[in-house]
């Protein structure tokens, strides 16, 4: 959904989009959603992942109660091979 420049300066309504940083990349998301919504949107629901927002861990049990705000720095990590 296109937005005029500067729209992020105003209060978000559920239909507006906010800009996040997700795993180091810019990411646009509908305003008013939670961290759990983001995880679902990424197709990672039920996967073994961990989420950090603005350098704070968000426990799995808290994802649905954690609203996302413009400018949030989000990390979603998983396990990979390593020594």
């Amino acid at each position: 959904m296109p937005h005029p420049p500067g729209c992020l300066l105003f209060m978000s309504t559920p239909n507006e989009s906010i800009q996040l940083t997700l795993n180091g990349e810019p990411y646009a998301m509908t305003a008013g959603l939670t961290a759990a919504d983001l995880v679902e949107q990424l197709g990672l629901g039920g996967r073994r992942i961990a989420v950090e927002i603005n350098e704070q861990i968000v426990p799995k049990s808290q994802l649905a109660a954690t609203p996302l705000g413009a400018g949030d720095q989000i990390e979603v990590v998983h396990a990979i091979g390593g020594g």
């Binding site: 795993n23 990424l42 979603v76 990590v77 396990a79 990979i80 390593g82 020594g83």
Partner: peptide, 10 residues
Amino acid sequence: VTFAVRRTNL
């Protein structure tokens, strides 16, 4: 067994 933690590949 060790493993590494990395960003998920979106």
